[in-house]
Amino acid sequence: MNNEQTKSLIDTISLEEYVQKGKLPQCLPADAQITLEQAKAQADEVWSVEKEKLEVFSFDYKGCTVNMTFQMDGTYLFDSIDVWGEVGNSGGVATEKELESNSDLDSGPGTSKLATLETVESIQQFAEKVGMKLEWFEMGDERVCLMPSAVTLHYLKQQKNSWKLVKIAGAYRSVGEVRSSLSSIADAMN
Results as ranks from 00 to 15, higher is better:
residue 142 E to R: 15
residue 143 R to Y: 13
residue 143 R to C: 07
residue 143 R to E: 12
residue 144 V to E: 05
residue 144 V to M: 06
residue 145 C to A: 14
residue 145 C to P: 06
residue 146 L to Q: 02
residue 146 L to M: 05
residue 147 M to V: 11
residue 147 M to G: 03
residue 147 M to K: 08
residue 147 M to H: 05
residue 147 M to A: 02
residue 148 P to Y: 05
residue 148 P to R: 02
residue 148 P to D: 02
residue 148 P to V: 08
residue 149 S to P: 05
residue 149 S to Y: 01
residue 150 A to T: 06
residue 150 A to P: 01
residue 151 V to Q: 01
residue 151 V to P: 00
residue 152 T to S: 12
residue 152 T to Q: 11
residue 152 T to A: 02
residue 152 T to M: 09
residue 152 T to R: 09
residue 152 T to P: 06
residue 153 L to P: 09
residue 153 L to M: 15
residue 154 H to C: 10
residue 154 H to T: 14
residue 154 H to P: 00
residue 155 Y to I: 10
residue 155 Y to P: 06
residue 155 Y to K: 10
residue 155 Y to Q: 09
residue 155 Y to E: 00
residue 155 Y to V: 10
residue 156 L to Y: 11
residue 156 L to V: 14
residue 156 L to D: 03
residue 156 L to F: 11
residue 157 K to E: 13
residue 157 K to P: 03
residue 157 K to S: 02
residue 158 Q to G: 06
residue 159 Q to V: 15
residue 161 N to I: 12
residue 161 N to S: 11
residue 162 S to L: 08
residue 162 S to G: 03
residue 162 S to V: 03
residue 163 W to T: 03
residue 163 W to N: 03
residue 164 K to E: 01
residue 164 K to Y: 07
residue 164 K to M: 12
residue 164 K to L: 07
residue 165 L to I: 04
residue 165 L to A: 03
residue 165 L to T: 02
residue 165 L to V: 01
residue 165 L to K: 04
residue 166 V to M: 07
residue 166 V to H: 12
residue 166 V to P: 00
residue 167 K to S: 04
residue 167 K to F: 08
residue 167 K to H: 12
residue 168 I to Q: 01
residue 168 I to M: 07
residue 169 A to C: 14
residue 169 A to I: 10
residue 169 A to N: 12
residue 169 A to G: 03
residue 169 A to F: 11
residue 170 G to T: 05
residue 170 G to I: 14
residue 171 A to S: 13
residue 171 A to R: 15
residue 172 Y to Q: 12
residue 173 R to K: 13
residue 174 S to D: 08
residue 174 S to T: 15
residue 175 V to W: 01
residue 175 V to G: 10
residue 176 G to D: 11
residue 176 G to H: 11
residue 176 G to T: 14
residue 176 G to I: 15
residue 176 G to M: 14
residue 177 E to F: 03
residue 177 E to W: 04
residue 177 E to Y: 10
residue 178 V to T: 13
residue 178 V to N: 04
residue 179 R to Q: 09
residue 179 R to E: 05
residue 179 R to F: 15
residue 179 R to D: 06
residue 179 R to Y: 13
residue 179 R to M: 09
residue 180 S to D: 10
residue 180 S to W: 08
residue 180 S to E: 11
residue 181 S to A: 10
residue 181 S to N: 10
residue 181 S to C: 06
residue 182 L to A: 04
residue 182 L to H: 09
residue 183 S to M: 14
residue 183 S to C: 13
residue 183 S to P: 00
residue 184 S to L: 11
residue 185 I to E: 09
residue 185 I to A: 14
residue 185 I to P: 03
residue 185 I to G: 02
residue 185 I to V: 15
